[in-house]
């Protein structure tokens, strides 16, 4: 079973829910796919014993073979290559913008001169280890890199179908989120009861509906703001899985990198219950969809 935890808006408590769900379950596997800003390690404090680099193939031009025909610049859909044709005795030039390259391979495959070879460029790292009984994998995009899905895909290669996996997804509604939640059996959307929270929740719901992934909602800081998130969930038939009230003590524990369950052991039962409820919702077809 793969359960991903996402939110349209950042900072709603997504990592809190993901981390504590993993802590409450026995032998869960945790995957931090929020590779632009990975934070779960702050709370789980894993012992890491393996690190691997993530590369994407980017083109390198052999100017001795290149005829400056312009083909590669034309086929690259991401404008990662620009060909300057030679003129008046000046040799031409092929400019490569590696940070725009998606590593699709079109240029090297289609160059009529066989002048392009692919070289690996590092864009991030994946670290793995364990935090108590939880096995832990986390991806990290290098600062200055624009394209995070290859790092997310690499993290997800560690998924094992037999175990419960908790995925901490990035915020938003575009490519990185889709890459992270794709293939999940269930998605928990974390929100807060404010107009910002509601607006971004409704966008995230649209994403999951389009992807046909069943979902439910956790309302964090449930006693601030207004009642419109509750109304929305009721109207859209979306189950509310848990409500976490605002408290200075909870905020303080979070600030210092202490998980909810270690600070307030009562929450453990709530997370176990939530996991059971997800199972029933899926069986009965009553999850949000």
């Amino acid at each position: 079973m793969i359960i991903s935890v996402a939110s349209g808006k950042g900072g709603t408590g997504k990592t809190t829910v993901a981390v504590n769900l993993a802590l409450a379950l026995k032998d869960a596997r945790f995957f931090d796919c929020d590779v632009e800003e990975p934070n779960a390690h702050i709370f789980l404090k894993p012992r890491l014993n393996r690190q691997e680099k993530v590369f994407i193939p980017v083109p390198e031009i052999d100017t001795a073979k290149c005829s400056f025909c312009g083909k590669c610049g034309e086929v690259c859909a991401y404008h990662a290559l620009a060909v300057i044709k030679g003129e008046g005795g000046h040799q031409g030039e092929v400019l490569v913008f590696p940070h725009l390259c998606h590593g699709c391979g079109a240029c090297s495959m289609l160059c009529p001169q066989g002048a392009i070879r692919e070289v690996n460029k590092e864009i991030g790292t994946v670290e793995s280890g364990s935090a108590g009984e939880i096995s832990f994998v986390s991806g990290r995009l290098n600062v200055g890199e624009a394209v995070s899905p290859p790092v997310i895909r690499r993290v997800k290669e560690y998924l094992e179908p037999s175990k419960t996996a908790v995925i901490d997804a990035p915020p938003g509604t575009s490519c990185p989120v889709i890459c992270a939640v794709k293939g999940s059996d269930f998605c928990i959307l974390v929100t807060e009861p404010t107009p910002f929270g509601l607006h971004d929740l409704s966008l995230a719901v649209e994403v999951l509906r389009k992807m046909e992934i069943p979902f439910g909602v956790v309302i964090n800081r449930s006693d601030i703001g207004d009642g419109k998130v509750e109304d929305y969930c009721a109207k859209e038939n979306i189950p509310v899985l848990m409500r976490i009230p605002f408290s200075r003590e909870i905020a303080e524990a979070y600030a210092r990198g202490i998980s909810l369950i270690s600070a307030f052991p009562d929450f453990k039962g709530k997370f176990i219950e939530m996991r059971a409820r997800i199972g029933t919702l899926l069986e009965s077809g009553k999850a949000g969809r």
């Binding site: 900072g11 632009e36 800003e37 624009a146 394209v147 915020p171 938003g172 575009s174 990185p176």
Partner: peptide
């Protein structure tokens, strides 16, 4: 600006 450090942020 958006959250994160990826393409929309850059």
């Amino acid at each position: 600006g958006p959250p994160g450090i990826g393409c929309p942020v850059i």
